[in-house]
């Protein structure tokens, strides 16, 4: 199975609005779950100032906005169950 790609924006605006809490959640996942993902931290996507509400992540290339820690957990759970 191919890995799901997650990019967490750690640019300043996303960081201020809580991207750090998302990376903490990812860090605390067990190794076998992490194995299903290809997760990386990315510099500013450039979308936060006008287009979208931070914090932003990309799941398999698709932009998701206003990601709360709860939402992030749900996203991961959904992918793991698939």
């Amino acid at each position: 199975m191919s890995k799901s790609k997650i990019e967490i924006c750690v640019g300043t605006t996303c960081h201020v609005m809580g991207a750090h809490a998302l990376s903490e959640i990812y860090d605390e996942l067990s190794e076998d779950i992490k194995d299903k993902f290809d997760c990386k931290y990315s510099l500013c996507f450039g979308d936060c100032h006008e287009k979208a509400k931070p914090p932003l992540i990309k799941v398999n290339g698709e932009l998701v906005q206003n990601v709360t820690p709860d939402m992030f957990r749900e996203i991961i759970e959904k992918i793991v169950k698939e």
Binding site: V10, T12, T13, H15, V16, C44, H49
Partner: peptide, 12 residues
């Protein structure tokens, strides 16, 4: 951090 964000300063 909020001031950096407002002025689009990206430490990374």
């Amino acid at each position: 951090a909020s001031l950096f964000a407002a002025k689009k300063i990206e430490p990374g």
